[in-house]
């Protein structure tokens, strides 16, 4: 394959990182390895976002997923099982049947998007930073969803506190 441009190399590298990480999540036997693989996968996806000129989304991906969700997951692992516990169980159930189902889904979706006639010819738009455009969209056309999202986050905040709070004796 001649003309192996830098872009192709970078893409396959990042896609590889994302997929290998995802495989780690799906197949690792130790839950902590799964969590760390998840972080690897997120990093790869963040790289893909940069390739797609979505700097802002890439930044959010790093901050929220790599910085937040993965750390939260590790915390949950430690709180529930104790990281030093040898028996950090991560067994899988019904792998064969699961694999079958997933292959069916894969085949179905693969076929659909390969067969799809995309609306307009695939082309690169001018590569410029889209952060400003995202900001305008969030506070312009999408300001209502944006505000609703803040309500959702508030509800989550309260909900998480209520759920994890220890039961006290005063509830009578």
């Amino acid at each position: 394959m001649e003309g192996l441009s830098a872009e192709v190399v970078v893409f396959f590298f990042l896609a590889g990182v994302a997929v290998v990480g995802a495989c780690g999540v799906a197949f690792a036997t130790h839950i902590v390895y799964s969590a760390l693989s998840l972080m690897l996968s997120f990093l790869g996806v963040a790289g893909l976002y940069v390739m797609l000129d979505a700097d802002f989304v890439a930044g959010v991906q790093l901050l929220v997923y790599v910085g937040g969700v993965v750390v939260l997951t590790l915390f949950a692992v430690m709180l529930t099982q104790g990281i030093r516990d040898v028996k950090v169980s991560n067994r899988s159930a019904g792998r064969g049947f699961g694999l079958l189902t997933v292959v069916a889904v894969f085949a179905l979706l693969w076929r659909s998007f390969q067969a799809a006639q995309w609306h307009r010819p695939v082309e690169y738009l001018a590569a410029e930073s889209s952060t400003a455009a995202v900001g305008n969209a969030l506070l312009g056309r999408y300001v209502l969803p944006f505000e609703v999202a803040s309500l959702v986050l508030l509800a989550v905040l309260v909900g998480a506190v209520v759920l994890t709070r220890k039961e006290t004796a005063e509830s009578e």
Binding site: A18, V19, A22, C23, V25, A26, I31, A35, S41, V45, T73, A76, V77, T80, S89, N90, R91, S92, A93, G94, R95, G98, L99, T101, V102, V105, F106, L109, W110, F113
Partner: peptide, 18 residues
């Protein structure tokens, strides 16, 4: 798609809630 399928597999087969 690959990420989606691996995630689905994970959801279907994992016995650990996390």
């Amino acid at each position: 798609l690959i990420l989606f399928c691996l995630g689905l597999f994970c959801v279907l087969t994992r016995r650990n809630a996390i």
